[in-house]
Design a protein around this nucleic acid. Structure first.
Lengths: 191, 191
DNA sequence: CCTATTTTGGACTGATCAATACAATAGGAG
DNA sequence: CTCCTATTGTATTGATCAGTCCAAAATAGG
């Protein structure tokens, strides 16, 4: 056919994702994306149409991975529901070894949601997925007698998402693991 | 002496503050700041040395006002402590009529804290003030028997701050008042 | 009125932005 | 080997960025 690609698209998206995650959308220049991915400008613009499109791919990748993890642990019928919820909160307290501080979804919601309708909609769709998984788990917890009957599962689910967001903001501000863990522990008492 | 100023510095800082609050630091151009404040470039650079300095003033103003409110309500000995805490959470659920969505402190922590040490330090100082006010109120609540004895006041204070941050992120993402109120209500159950 | 001094408007600066143009390159298909 | 085509590196685009310059304007003090 023709000259083959020298790079893997997935690796490039992963690298771009981490750059956006660390510095935010506006503060990440296309030059920085070239350096982060190791690609030239042509390869980036040839593969992804624009900085914004690359960001969309990066955000999508982030959401797919993280949300899949959440859905998986929340659906794990072999563990008590409260333990599953505590695991989700725990992830927000113990960040990956060399991950940037905070959470790309929270960062994007703060920086872009109010002025980028496309991104806002994608964030909304992702949040709906996490919300559904939480509601299902919480309702299971109610049936199992782990969670007080009569509690509004949807309200609790929103509460869990909000708590994780708050912890991500705190982490972004430099909060240490102990502080984050104490927040997670406290938050569990409302459930 | 000389030609007098035609504008009030406070009004300009207020206008700039709202611009940064709505769009973020990077996405707010100096041109946009001119339009928001109604000043010319010369006046802005003559009065505030740079975009970054103007942002610092705007952020300081925001923190001073908001934190003063929080400290005031938390120190109001005429009301039950839990009511005072609920009021603070309530502010995060019912935003000002024509305020931008979310919270400038949360936005700055997300966008700037990891890469702007000066801003990070100022945010840290402000958070310490809010933390102290919360700790004092919570300890008062414990003494008054409103809050279970033996609970870690500092951990609870961090939890309240994190909850407010989470709600601000949700608001930034477009959450409605009902959802935010339900989060505040749920959060109170951990206290 | 006149001068000293500050503010103001608007043109301008070099740097950097996202994005494009294009020729050189590389490799599979024939 | 040769051609076709996609990829790549580099130079370049026009726009916009934050910030500066300077002359005109304005006013309080003398």
């Amino acid at each position: 056919m023709a000259r083959p690609r020298k790079f893997e698209e997935e690796r490039a998206v992963e690298a771009a994702m981490r750059a956006f995650w660390a510095d935010g959308y506006e503060a990440t220049s296309t030059q920085a994306l070239c350096e982060a991915t190791g690609l030239g400008r042509s390869s980036i613009y040839n593969t992804f149409r624009s900085k914004h499109d690359l960001f969309k791919k990066a955000l999508t990748r982030y959401m797919d991975v993280k949300t899949a993890n959440i859905i998986e642990v929340l659906a794990d019928g072999s563990r008590p529901v409260r333990e599953r919820l505590r695991t989700v909160l725990g992830w927000a307290a113990e960040p990956g070894a060399d991950d940037p501080a905070g959470c790309l979804v929270v960062n994007a919601m703060v920086e872009l949601a109010p002025r980028d309708a496309v991104t806002a909609e994608r964030l909304g769709k992702d949040q709906a997925r996490r919300l559904d998984a939480l509601v299902a788990a919480i309702e299971e917890g109610v049936r199992a007698g782990e969670i007080e009957p009569g509690r509004d599962a949807r309200a609790l689910a929103h509460y869990v998402i909000s708590t994780v967001s708050g912890m991500r903001v705190a982490a972004r501000g430099g909060a240490d693991r102990r502080t984050l863990t104490s927040i997670a522990d406290t938050a569990m008492q409302a459930i």
